[in-house]
Simulated scan of single mutants.
Amino acid sequence: MHAPAPHPRKSFFLGMRLFLPVAISIASYGVVWGVLAGQAGLTPLEVVLMSGLVYAGASQFVAIDMWSPLSLPVASIVVATAVINLRMLLMTATLRPQFEHLPRWRALLAMFLVSDEVWAMTMAEHAKGGGGAAFMLGAGTLAWIGWVGSTLTGRMLGAVIDDPTAYGLDFAFTATFLALLLSMWKGRGDLVPWLAGGAIAIGVSMLVPGTWYIIAGGLGGSLLGAFLQHRMRDAA
């Protein structure tokens, strides 16, 4: 007999509570982006609008690296960020079963709050028998607030923190994803696709310019993992 599903409001606040440590890490590299945005010439309002509407950490770092107020390469920025965010198609597709009970338009709006960290925590909780749409929305809401607030803070503190690396804030991005990766560890069976994905990403980054290595590594590791899982089911 299955335990009754928790009330959506309870799941929402549970998602917020469990996501709080991750939100603190997000805020750390959000400050870094805000400092860089200030150095690139963005105003506080532009920082809030970009973080709130684009809401894509990795893409925003790439965009700010390409930012040139005198000759803004709009087309190049759009293409680069689109390539990086292609992974969201795969990630949101895996969340679809948890949103089937919602009207499509509400489910599509909810996908705006999906990020790497929110997706990883929602899937990890789902594997334990929890998760769900309300849980993801709770984690996603806190992530969005933390990202917008921290990038604005970084922009305002830009005159004080001129070099984020001096405070070790640049490592927060890497540390966050390492922690999420370990939280999703299920056993030695995960090691092969993880290593394969990493190797593919490294190889593509050396051979192909741009950020295609992100898509290649993610697709390669995911496809290998699916293939191995299918073989294990057939063997059983």
Rank of each mutant, 00 (worst) to 15 (best):
S28I: 10
G131W: 00
E100K: 14
M91Y: 14
A236E: 15
L182N: 06
D116M: 09
E46P: 08
P69M: 07
M136Q: 10
T151E: 05
F19M: 07
T211Q: 11
V62A: 15
G132I: 09
G218Q: 00
V74Q: 10
D190G: 07
I161G: 02
V118G: 03
L102R: 11
K128S: 13
G158I: 06
W212M: 04
Y167V: 06
T176M: 15
H2N: 14
D65L: 08
W119S: 06
K186E: 12
L195F: 10
G57K: 03
E117G: 10
A40C: 08
A120E: 04
V148E: 02
V47G: 01
T141D: 04
G52D: 00
M121L: 15
A37C: 09
S25P: 01
A196S: 10
A93Y: 11
L70V: 13
T141P: 01
V192F: 12
G30E: 01
G217S: 07
V208S: 03
I161A: 01
E117M: 09
M121S: 10
L207H: 10
G189S: 11
L45C: 05
A80W: 05
F177D: 09
S150M: 06
R155W: 01
A143N: 11
W212T: 00
R9G: 11
A37Y: 02
A80Y: 04
A93K: 05
A236Y: 12
N85G: 08
W119A: 07
T211D: 04
M136A: 13
F135H: 05
T43R: 06
P8D: 12
S183Q: 13
L219Y: 02
A27L: 11
